[in-house]
Design a protein around this nucleic acid. Structure first.
Lengths: 195, 195
DNA sequence: GAACCATTCATACGTTCGTATTATTCGTGA
DNA sequence: TCACGAATAATACGAACGTATGAATGGTTC
């Protein structure tokens, strides 16, 4: 599983061959078929093992005792921290989609679950007028877009622009930036005075 | 080129075989090697043909005669409209990256150029205090994240949530949402009164 | 210590891949 | 009209792929 996670992240699903994975794991060529049934089954297993903790983490942050906006804020941060610890995850979330396929089942269910959680949080914020009006699902997607995209482009940015967002200092700036951006994007415009 | 664009979008770079492409083009298996030199060269050519118009479109919108915030707004819309007309593009922009590779040269070049344009626009807005303080490149990336991510997840959303963002009405709602979100994320907080 | 069973291992199979090779076709310009 | 060259076409090649097969291995249980 570890070798699979690494190689799927490095080379993508198609790029990571069964031979490469088993050889990195110092196992036999047949090991994947034997233990998981197929390459795809291993892939799904790897996905599950990465995506479930993210889902749990988001659910936990979302259920804290704090104003909805603060919790949404915390979700953004949680995403970044989780991605920092599992830098491969955003690639896993998007790879099949970017290759024109449906997301694999583990990703689809996690996506659905997280989106439900966030949309509920947004709705709560809207009820108490702290979050801007608008489709809760769209607002949630816009939130998610930030950590996913910004993490995803980190490597290309480093290689194309020489912009390194991975060292501790830059990373904190990145997180702060995204939190501020999302919070501003979500916050209900302060009402003129009345109301 | 058309067959390549279609199949690369549908199946990803690895998924689209030379045989499938040439057969859809009703051409011979050797056609790609003959006319482009290799599969990868065709891929780069296809990328260039999609990415250059986007770059030009952004540059055009960014050079309009309007307040920076309005132009940034217009860039978001331009992205969405361009993606609506070329729904494959976001996949092309992200596929190799999501597969753990560097972006192909045409994408890297366009990325660099667009990012330069937008960052300049952001800086201009910051100078006249209409755009929030912060790293112009990060702010630009946050802007780009919205059309790219939201377009990218459209298909999965339809299949997973039954949420269809492609019909005209939903699409306009989507664009309006993203514009509002980005504008709010970029706008400098109104100063208390003084200043 | 013998039987059993999960696992490891080496190897083979059939497919598909991208590209190279060689021949053929066909429109164009002298 | 003939020759040239660009384009198409059919086929071959070697490599890599995911998976299947059957034999070895080694620990556990009676």
């Amino acid at each position: 599983m570890r070798a699979g996670r690494e190689l799927f992240a490095e080379q993508g699903y198609d790029g990571a061959s069964v031979r490469a994975i088993t050889s990195r794991a110092e196992a036999n060529l047949g090991a994947i078929t034997y233990h998981f049934g197929s390459k795809q089954a291993l892939y799904h297993e790897v996905l599950r093992s990465m995506v479930v903790p993210l889902r749990d983490r988001v659910a936990e942050v979302a259920s804290r005792d704090a104003p909805p906006l603060d919790r949404l804020d915390a979700v953004v941060e949680a995403y970044f921290r989780h991605f920092a610890a599992h830098g491969d995850l955003p690639r896993f979330l998007m790879e099949r989609i970017a290759a024109g396929q449906l997301p694999p089942p583990p990703v689809a269910v996690a996506m659905k679950s997280i989106l439900g959680t966030l949309a509920g949080l947004v709705r709560e914020g809207q009820r108490q007028r702290s979050v801007r009006d608008g489709d809760p699902v769209l607002l949630s997607l816009s939130l998610i877009a930030q950590p996913v995209y910004l993490t995803l482009v980190q490597t290309p940015l480093r290689d194309v622009l020489g912009l390194d967002l991975a060292d501790t200092e830059s990373f904190e700036r990145l997180v702060d930036h995204a939190r501020a951006f999302v919070r501003a994007g979500l916050t209900a415009s302060p009402l003129p005075d009345t109301a």
